[in-house]
Design a protein around this nucleic acid. Structure first.
Lengths: 115, 115
DNA sequence: CTAATCTGCAACCAGGAGGTTGCATATGAA
DNA sequence: TTCATATGCAACCTCCTGGTTGCAGATTAG
């Protein structure tokens, strides 16, 4: 039986909860898309195109950093933030896993009905 | 320039914020993995293996349903919940998009440095 | 040196999230 | 009918989240 693999995938998925939580906010998703350009951006730069306060943006960056989605490095008086793609890939693969399990389950159920 | 495609992907990503928010909780991820089996499960069944109250589970199912990740259908005195795979796929594709844009951006930056 | 800029820290606030309890209601079984 | 089961609704509580303002410190520009 694939019960073991199922439990493994479940744990893998659950482990990504903080990443999904960090992604569950439009402001943070907007920040990520800005950092997708590849160039590290300062807090001030990231605040420019937003209606929110610098402090709000700072907090959002903190959430993203705690989730491992972003990394901040100090340069002079500014704090440059850069995207960290690995957690994103892992989350994507976790979603892959659940979709695959769903498909397999449906296939099993279908073949069971047809016999 | 691919600025248009970039903005399109950004909007697509932002649209999935509620889905990610719904995924950002271990209890709800556990519920999803249980529903991955393909068989619709009642609230009572989903509560059995949990330390939480039935009411708590009900609320979590409500969140998942509002995000479109799950669909509840009444059968007799029980409410059976079933996974809805489409939003998951869409969210996965949105993550794909941001990863791809990151890779492309790095490639551009690299070729720019090398010239 | 002085002024402008970028950031960090702390306090504060409103509202929502997660959870519980209690009670009412609908349905299935005997 | 009568009892057990499955659910829904509402009130309540605590804690976290998203956001603000004010001020202080560090760094760069002139």
């Amino acid at each position: 039986m694939s019960a073991i693999r199922h439990e493994h995938a479940a744990r893998k998925l659950r482990r990504n909860a903080p990443v999904f939580a960090a992604l569950g906010d439009e402001t943070r998703l907007t920040l990520l898309t800005k950092l997708c350009g590849g160039l590290p951006l300062s807090i001030a730069r990231l605040t420019e195109s937003s209606a929110l306060t610098r402090q709000a943006i700072t907090k959002h960056l903190g959430v993203l950093q705690d989730a491992g989605l972003v990394r901040g490095v100090r340069r002079g008086r500014e704090n440059l933030f850069e995207l960290e793609p690995r957690p994103l890939d892992e989350a994507r693969r976790a979603l892959d896993g659940i979709s695959r399990q769903w498909d397999e389950a449906l296939a099993r159920l279908k073949s069971f009905v047809e016999e």
